[in-house]
Structures are given as structure tokens and as C-alpha cells.
Design a protein around this nucleic acid. Structure first.
Lengths: 194, 194
DNA sequence: AAATTTTCTTAAACCAGATTAAGAATGTGT
DNA sequence: ACACATTCTTAATCTGGTTTAAGAAAATTT
């Protein structure tokens, strides 16, 4: 199990002793899944938060008309999960599946509670992490209200240049809240301009 | 200074001793502002998180075209602020002003750090609070992508029945991401239906 | 390398919601 | 009670993005 990545991620926000590190690592489980396999399906209970070691996951929900909407992508060094389901142990509204073969580390609900108790600094780590996620989400909502799809796509490309190549356009379109047809038309227009 | 409300709010999530309570209260400042006065203006640094004792605040940002977009309303028993600006002490993107005469309790950045140090349970309180805010924001974004304005308005009315009466329609429209004209038309249509 | 599935493109018809503009109703200060 | 600002309504026109449909290109499977 490769642990350097996750420890490094955590130590950007809090300091850990060797003991604390190995205690934390002892709480994690490892899993490898293939493309198109699921880590979570809607209406199940989300039992883990997932940290991606390699590969790429997405979370999405299905609306009343049966349409899929991508909520988040997670590549190496990112966490993903259904936070509400995980913390309240209620049925998930999100699905999480793999867009590539993916390796994850899993942190369960009891594990995280033990962690908070034995190493309170983790309370801080997760607070800061969620704080950042909240701010990002708030700004994404703001952009969806005040910017056109074209501007949002350009912003997306600038912010996540890796994703542009790595992800199918259908997924990007869904994340941006537009149809793949319209994204395709946008790309044609932008390519023509240059 | 009325303190029952905020203590009650906190004690729903964490337990406090009498000592901890009075230490916490000693960190707070009180302020009363009139309708249309500002607690924060964009590009200033957000120095406090605000807890509303009475009245009503809103946070909003101004987009490139000069249009205002309401991000949040805060009535009694709610917190409001510009989280990114507050935690990183960088210029705010939000404005916060009063829609009614409003009383707030203010918690500053140094105060909160002292609090985390002396009463670590507050780390937990704010983690849970932000966690809930994040989940709510995620779902608001999802709704903005998958539901029509009509559905969002109906959901809003159901979720915050108090707000319907209390807030001007322009503000509600802005919060929902639509124009006041369109909201007015929606209301006419819905009233006709019944 | 052929067959099948998945992904991407193009274009026409359509629609939810914006914009513009004008007037009506309500509130507020003097 | 009056004037003035703010809030709300109605209706015509316009637009960013959806829907539908069909085909082309690329990736996977056999």
C-alpha cells in the first residue's frame, strides 16, 4: 500500500508524530476497481470516504427525468464521497464509479470517530478540507448563475488542464451543466476563432 | 447581550462547561445595524463571522455585468460571513448588508483561534456546521442544474415559509437565480392555477 | 480486420427564461 | 396629505441552451 501520497496531503495541514501516522494508516483499507465499477450507489449507505491513489472517479446523481449530473471528479490526491450519507448514515443521493481503473484508500465512519478521539488534530484537518470544499462549491454555484456556458468551459479548461485530455466530453459537459451537443458546438466555435 | 440563543445553538452539537461558556461569550462582540447598512463590503477583509440575534441579513456578490446575486439570507439563529476571506484574510468577494434592523454577535479570527486552542470541542462545532453548509450548497447547485425555476421556487417556499412573507421578491428572485419579472410571472401563473 | 459499442459532431426546431419598457401599487419620509 | 422612492406586474421581443435526429469517428471486443 502506497502511503506517501496521503500522509503528504495531510501534513500540509496538520503535523503528525510517527505514532499518529501509523495509527492513522492502520485505520485505512485499500481497494482497486476497474473502469465502470461502483464504489457507491444511490440509496445505499456511504460507509467510507475515499482517497484516490491512482486513476479517476466521479460522483453523480440521477434527476427525476433520469438524467445524470456529474457532481465531482476525483483523481490522484483527492477525496470523494457522499458527505451527508457518510456522516448521518442515511441513504446516499450520489453514485460513485470509476472512469479509469482506480486505486483508493478507504476511511470508515467508526475509523474516523476513533481518529477524532485519539488524534484530535484530524478534526482540524477535516474541518479545513471541508471548508475549502464549501468555498469551491459556493463559487461554482455563483459561476453557474452569472457566467455563460462558454465562460464556464474556458474557466474549467484553465483550472483543470489535465481533465480536458483525460475525461470524455460527455462527462465534462455534465459537470458544467450543459448537454454534450452544446459543448461540442462550443468547441467548434472556439476552435474556429483561433 | 442576549446569549441564550447562541449557546443553545452550540450546545445542540457539543457540550460545554460553565467556564467554557463564559470564555466563549467573552470573545464575542455585539453590534446593531439599521436596514441597508453594511457589515462587509467586497474587497475588504472579512474580520468576523456573524451570528444573527434578530433581524435579517443577506450576502451577495456583484458579477462582471454589475448584477447582484444573493448567496445567502441569515435570520435569527444563523451564521453568515465570507468564509474564504475570513479564514485566509484575503479580500472578500461577498457583500453583507441588512434587509431589516439587525442585531449580531461577532466572532473574530484571533478569537476563533484562541477558542480552538482553549476549547478544542469548537473545532468540532465548526466542522459540523461547515459540513452541513457544504451539503446544502451541493444540493442547491444540483437543483439549479436539474430543476426549473418554478420547481425551485416551490421548493424554496416549502423549505423557508417564513422568508416568503418577510423578504422582498427581488431578493428571493436573486437567490433563486432568476429575474424579478420572471418570478412575478411565475407567481401569477401559480396563483391562477389554484 | 470485422463487428459493435462508445464518443463526438452538425444542424434544425424549439423553449425556458432574459431583456426591455411601461405602468400600477405599495411604502416611507416630511 | 403629499411627494418620492421602492416594489411588483404585465406583455412583447429576443437569446442561450435543449431536444431531436442523423451520421462520422474513434475505441473495444471478437
Amino acid at each position: 500500500m502506497q502511503t506517501a501520497l496521503i500522509l503528504q496531503n495531510i501534513q500540509k495541514l496538520i503535523a503528525l508524530t510517527e505514532e499518529e501516522k501509523s495509527f492513522f494508516l492502520s485505520l485505512l483499507k485499500y481497494k482497486k476497481i476497474k473502469k465502470r465499477q461502483y464504489l457507491l450507489q444511490a440509496d445505499d449507505i456511504c460507509r467510507y470516504e475515499y482517497f484516490v491513489l491512482s486513476g479517476c472517479l466521479r460522483s453523480y446523481y440521477v434527476d427525476e427525468k433520469g438524467q445524470e449530473h456529474v457532481v465531482q471528479f476525483a483523481v490522484e490526491d483527492w477525496w470523494i464521497g457522499d458527505m451527508r450519507s457518510f456522516f448521518t448514515q442515511t441513504p446516499a443521493w450520489l453514485n460513485i464509479d470509476a472512469l479509469e481503473e482506480t486505486e483508493v484508500l478507504m476511511l470508515g465512519k467508526e475509523a474516523i470517530n476513533e481518529l477524532y478521539q485519539k488524534v484530535p488534530a484530524f478534526e482540524r484537518y477535516f474541518r479545513i478540507r471541508i471548508q475549502n470544499a464549501f468555498v469551491a462549491e459556493q463559487q461554482r454555484l455563483a459561476q453557474s448563475y452569472s457566467k455563460t456556458a462558454e465562460k464556464r468551459y474556458l474557466d474549467f479548461r484553465e483550472r483543470y488542464p489535465q481533465f480536458e485530455q483525460r475525461l470524455p466530453q460527455v462527462q465534462i459537459a455534465s459537470y458544467l451543466g450543459i448537454t454534450p451537443e452544446f459543448l461540442s458546438a462550443l468547441r467548434a466555435k472556439l476552435a474556429g476563432k483561433r
